[in-house]
């Protein structure tokens, strides 16, 4: 396992674009977050919105970049044929997948933490938000976990689908389609159900700090829903990589 980890780390580290993608995660998260915080004006009439959520809006764009990174981690191997070499070197295929997942978790955690911290620092200046509040800290930590889980979901899906383009489409579709259907539906119950099962809506419930008695799904349970999606994707990917020819 240590060797597999070392191999995956070397691959990720030396792939051109990894560093740029990680910087993009941070920039997208902080950029959109600062923008959202800056346009939120709390002087007139007070703020009726969840400020923690507003300041962490950037996660919604950052997750797309995290998905790209995660798709690339294994998808690029399939498109270049590198996967044959990887599996020859480490014949226990699940070890390869686990090593990839661990390395991915490590880098995404770092980038996500930087992005979320940047968003909160900006919000601290721009909004009347108590950053050290327990609920806000939970929203921040949850957002980091959210991005990590999105990465793992994308890794699992790509392992199962093997084609990076199709995988990227599938992951972004999974993330963005549920809220879009929710926007269109007129039925509040149906929308609530969508918010409870959609990976993005349920996962982002972890950012809620106000109106907790009216949310469709409680913060940690919502993150667990995304966790279940990620676990299912990794399981499917793990089974398929074991059973299929590479």
């Amino acid at each position: 396992m240590r060797r597999a980890l070392h191999a995956e780390w070397t691959k990720l580290r030396t792939t051109p674009g990894t560093g740029l993608l990680l910087l993009t995660v941070v920039a997208a998260t902080v950029g959109i977050g600062v923008l959202a915080s800056a346009v939120t004006d709390c002087r007139a009439g007070g703020c009726t919105v969840d400020l923690a959520k507003v300041s962490l809006t950037g996660v919604q764009l950052g997750q797309a970049v995290v998905a790209v990174l995660a798709v690339q981690v294994i998808g690029a191997e399939y498109s270049t044929g590198m996967i044959h070499l990887s599996l020859t070197a480490v014949p226990r295929r699940l070890t390869v997948l686990a090593a990839k997942a661990l390395v991915l978790t490590a880098v995404v955690t770092t980038a996500a933490a930087a992005g979320v911290a940047g968003s909160l620092l900006a919000a601290d200046r721009l909004l009347p938000l108590a950053v050290t509040d327990a609920a806000v800290l939970r929203a921040a930590a949850g957002s980091v976990l959210y991005l990590v889980l999105v990465g793992l979901l994308a890794l699992g899906v790509t392992t199962a689908v093997r084609n990076p383009g199709a995988a990227a489409g599938l992951v972004l579709g999974l993330l963005y389609l549920f809220p879009l259907i929710g926007l269109a539906t007129t039925d509040p119950d149906f929308r609530r159900h969508l918010d409870q099962i959609g990976p993005m809506a349920a996962g982002l419930a972890v950012q809620a700090t106000t109106g907790l008695d009216s949310v469709a799904v409680s913060p940690w349970r919502g993150l667990a829903v995304l966790g279940a999606w990620a676990a299912a994707a990794l399981l499917a990917g793990g089974l398929l990589i074991r059973l299929r020819d590479a």
């Binding site: 764009l61 797309a64 798709v71 990227a168 963005y176 879009l180």
Partner: peptide, 15 residues
Amino acid sequence: RGFTAVVAGIVVVVL
């Protein structure tokens, strides 16, 4: 590259 292009396409049209 397929996935970069797919993500770019979705990000500029859907997001």
